[in-house]
Write a protein that binds this DNA or RNA. Sequence first.
DNA 1: GTCCTTGCAAATCGTTTGCACTTAA
DNA 2: TTAAGTGCAAACGATTTGCAAGGAC
Lengths: 153, 153
Amino acid sequence: MGTTEEIVRQMSQKGLRITEQRRTLVKLFDETSGYLTPKDVYEHMQQLYPGLSFDTVYRNLRMLLDMEVVEQVLFEDGVKFKLRCEEEHHHHHMICLQCQKTLPIRFCPMTGTDVPGDFQVVKHKFEVFGICGDCRETEVPGSAANEASSAGG
Amino acid sequence: MGTTEEIVRQMSQKGLRITEQRRTLVKLFDETSGYLTPKDVYEHMQQLYPGLSFDTVYRNLRMLLDMEVVEQVLFEDGVKFKLRCEEEHHHHHMICLQCQKTLPIRFCPMTGTDVPGDFQVVKHKFEVFGICGDCRETEVPGSAANEASSAGG
DNA sequence: GTCCTTGCAAATCGTTTGCACTTAA
DNA sequence: TTAAGTGCAAACGATTTGCAAGGAC
């Protein structure tokens, strides 16, 4: 998407040092449309940096999280990360259970929800899980339903 | 609520044995309106059964989960359990960040969501987090906002 | 040269397992 | 009696920490 360099610049400005690993990590997120587990990240990076250790991955993920470059989502099978949406306006997501790609949902359910006057809303979560068009084309019948039961609620 | 005995009967029917601990565990959930972490459960039970071990708590929680007596929810600060809603009809929840009590939301956002034709919806999640009326009354100003940022998204 | 970043090893946290002992039915 | 439940200790996977060496600026 080309935001890699912009993010790297941001890091620089914060006084953080730009190592090759960090640049690669940012690029990885920049080029990935879906969610990545720390393990995914580790496995990808390890091919390029054989000496890589897991704690460095965790440290850098946390750094990107603190910088609000990536966002963290809890799935039933673990924590996952993806680049933060550039889209400014408040929105929600449809998440593909197969490739974990996300599609924006502009509709916000809070408009239609009847909240009791004495309940002070702090935040809300609305997520739709399913199989995206691309994945349905290449799908092996039956496999999707199985996957589905082990991911997000 | 008085469902304790009914659940115990169910367990009996499945061939499970009714130990004092299990009865107490069921009663604990029956009497709790909010969510409980395994640690919460352990700490409560340990007062009555000093020799209690954590693995027994986990084993019995899983048993109640398998029996569909309790449901499990992932929060940012860990897994939590509560008695399953008796309400049959599909619904969602408003969850108090302070006492973790839940209020039902009958409105389902899926009716208003525009799903692309090629996206096959498998499941969805809609949760509202905030401070309930009871907690707002006894609230120390400022503390609620802090709590909020560390729980569900 | 300074201070941040890394890898390593070890610690920690939440959860699960194997095993021998106990107990509900 | 006997299969299921328990506590204990140990294993486990995910994540975090302290520390000394390496690297960005």
